[in-house]
């Protein structure tokens, strides 16, 4: 089990390192990236359930950002794969329930269920991909600060920052605990329930103590009741250009069936 936890640990770490790189996209104001991501997701999910061709042009956005920011495609793709089971499990009922033939591809008759399933997978890849790309180009702390600047309650932003900070500390602590347990319990891979509650209880105790020590550390640096930061973001010309271009492109892809028009054109020319 420590393997799994360590993997999660390094996984978050890797995403953070990628977010620490420098590129045009990384340098943009986080608010711009957050807004564009939201536009993107809304545009993608607003298609009806049988949309396939209409969704395809939207892959331009992740491709462009991945290119511009130099993100590792394989890594992002693997992350997508890991979380895909839930959507696949639920979506896979579509092909079995919606049997009406919708498209014939030569000898192959494709039912509405398969079309909507394909659409579901495309949607899933696009929306989750967009969220991953946001984090990989911005970093979690900046996303939190952007949230706050866009009107989220301050306490929520502070929460998120503290949670993120101590995530690493606590994951390391739980890895140490589980390792200690594993070393002294020869056969069992996972702790039995009684041991489990004690493990967790101890982790919780340590966590509560730590919260107290952090509070103490805050107090000794003149903390009153509010956590303040001085970050200033500038929503300049680059941000405006980025946001408007992206929004215009999404609107275009949403209203004009780009892929179908292009396909029609090619058919016409080639035949």
């Amino acid at each position: 089990m420590t393997d799994r936890i360590s993997r999660a640990f390094y996984d978050i770490g890797r995403l953070e390192i990628i977010a620490g790189r420098d590129s045009f996209v990384h340098r943009l104001d986080p608010r711009a990236k957050l807004l564009v991501t939201v536009f993107f997701i809304i545009a993608v999910v607003s298609f009806d359930r049988y949309a396939v061709a209409g969704l395809v042009p939207f892959f331009l956005y992740p491709a462009a950002i991945i290119g511009l920011a130099g993100l590792p495609v394989g890594y992002l793709f693997r992350k997508l794969l890991i979380v895909s089971p839930f959507v696949i499990c639920i979506g896979i009922f579509n092909p079995f329930l919606d049997l009406e033939i919708m498209v014939n591809l030569g000898p192959l008759a494709v039912s509405g269920g398969w079309v909507s399933f394909t659409s579901l997978i495309l949607r899933f890849s696009l929306t989750i991909g967009a969220a991953l790309i946001l984090i990989a180009t911005t970093g979690f702390p900046k996303v939190c600060m952007a949230l706050e600047k866009l009107g989220a309650p301050r306490i929520l932003a502070v929460q998120l920052l503290l949670l993120y900070r101590y995530l690493f500390v606590l994951i390391e602590e739980s890895i140490r605990m589980i390792r200690a347990h594993a070393l002294r319990s020869c056969s069992r891979r996972r702790p039995a329930f009684r041991v489990y509650t004690q493990l967790l209880g101890n982790l919780l105790l340590r966590t509560l103590d730590r919260a107290e020590r952090i509070h103490l550390a805050m107090l000794s640096r003149a903390f009153t009741s509010e956590i303040r930061t001085v970050r200033r973001f500038t929503f300049g010309r680059a941000e405006l250009l980025f946001t408007l271009t992206a929004a215009a492109a999404f609107l275009l892809f949403r209203t004009i069936p780009v892929a179908e028009l292009l396909g029609g054109l090619i058919l016409e020319i080639s035949l």
């Binding site: 936890i5 949670l163 101590y166 994951i171 602590e173 739980s174 996972r190 967790l200 982790l203 966590t207």
Partner: peptide, 16 residues
Amino acid sequence: GVLGAFIFAAQMINFA
């Protein structure tokens, strides 16, 4: 904040 991190870590610990 720290309890949030705790819940996160705790959800990774499984029991048989």
